[in-house]
């Protein structure tokens, strides 16, 4: 089980910082910084800049995503913002509006 889980019923207005992994099923407005993996599940709403390790998105993100590793936008994901990572996948059915920076 993930170290930090923001469940579907929970809203956080503010800043989350962790050196572990995070699973988001609820709502975050502000900023999310994790050193380990971040998973934004289907149904989650993140109106925040997201910085993390390996990052998986199946929910909605409005904000810039920065990963020290890879970003996977899964089917059903909706991302409005710039994505910066060394490796990026955008699955069929993912919605994405923004720039991709793969740091080449």
């Amino acid at each position: 089980m993930a170290s930090t889980v923001i469940g579907a019923g929970i809203t956080i207005d503010g800043e989350i910082t962790t050196d572990e992994d995070v699973v988001v099923e609820g709502t975050i407005r502000g900023k999310l910084t994790a050193k380990d993996s971040v998973s934004i599940e289907a149904g989650a709403v993140v109106e925040a800049d997201v910085i993390g390790g390996p990052l998986t998105v199946a929910g909605t993100v409005t904000g810039n995503i920065t990963s020290s590793d890879r970003v996977d936008l899964q089917g059903g994901a909706k991302v409005i913002g710039n994505v910066k990572a060394t490796r990026i996948t955008i699955a069929d059915g993912a919605q994405f509006k923004g720039n991709v920076d793969m740091d080449v």
Binding site: V5, G7, G14, T18, E20, G26
Partner: peptide, 14 residues
């Protein structure tokens, strides 16, 4: 539906 804030995590806000 609930939440768990891991030992390495810090939240500032509401």
């Amino acid at each position: 539906g609930g939440a768990r804030i891991g030992s390495g995590a810090k939240i500032r806000g509401r």
